[in-house]
Design a binder for these strands. Structure first.
Lengths: 153, 153
DNA sequence: ACGGAAGCGGAAAAACGTTCTATCTCGACT
DNA sequence: AGTCGAGATAGAACGTTTTTCCGCTTCCGT
């Protein structure tokens, strides 16, 4: 079920990333093809899991989300059970927008988006009450200089 | 130009975040309204800049982007001119998916998505050749535990 | 050169976005 | 309390887009 992508596929993906709202005709014109092949290729890439969710990006600030933290986590616990509970806690909390397990010194990094610093503290207290964490450093974002979900194809 | 959001607006935004591909009828049924108000409200929120770009999320791994780094940057330069050049460099590089200016000890954090560790090194060398940076720490992601662009409304 | 599979462009059918209009709701004012 | 007006709503109407279908071409293996 794997799909080998050619140049046309990549052009289509580029267009979809740029604006998923445009019509097939527009995409077809842009990539130099016609409607049917564009449609078939998108369908295949969807089935293959290359193309995932279609979404809109909302402006966090105008919705009152004024604080964004990057949270660096060190833990002394490395058993499976602890990991499972930690992961479940992260997935259950919508303010956690991103979570990565890292190589090296620091074990995890989270990106947490909340309404204000107090909301972050509430989140933080709830998290450390739920799972044991050795060391936490929070980095507060003052300004989002760049944000994109697009991959450079 | 500001829009005060009511409960219906938030329901619509929640649906759009969940799946921006569904039809107006589906959204209307889900939020308990009809097509026209849903359409008008989305249009207004678009104009107000609350609703931004519509995009698809692609699977980075199946497209060969196997490495993701978080880059912590300290600099000794804090003049306007340096900042401008640094910002321009970040915006020009598509592998930089996210960049924040931070409060405190560390000045900037970047999220950099590349095909492999070598590609990261290429990026890193190019960046430090372009702008003077005092200290850099790269955190390598082993596993993306969670990713969402959705805000918790 | 031939056969077959895969991909293509264009046409038809179904679904959808967008506009319009009449109706409804709700708050302000007398 | 009653009335008026602004703004929002449901539903129908219209034009566009998606999705399916089909015949044609291209390309590869034999």
């Amino acid at each position: 079920m794997d799909v080998r992508l050619d140049d046309l596929d990549r052009k289509i993906l580029r267009e979809l990333q740029r604006d998923a709202g445009q019509s097939l005709d527009e995409i077809a014109k842009e990539v130099g093809s016609s409607k049917t092949p564009v449609w078939n290729r998108i369908r295949k890439m969807r089935e293959a899991g290359i193309v995932g969710a279609q979404t809109v990006l909302l402006d966090a600030e105008s919705l009152g989300f004024d604080a964004c933290f990057f949270v660096l986590i060190r833990t002394s616990e490395h058993e499976k059970d602890w990991q499972d509970r930690f992961l479940a806690a992260l997935k259950a909390r919508p303010e956690v927008q991103e979570a990565h397990r890292l190589a090296g010194d620091i074990d995890y990094i989270l990106k947490v988006r909340v309404k204000n610093a107090r909301a972050y503290d509430t989140f933080y207290q709830a998290l450390i009450a739920e799972v044991k964490i050795h060391n936490v450093t929070a980095l507060l974002s003052m300004e989002e200089l760049k944000f994109t979900t697009a991959l450079p194809l």
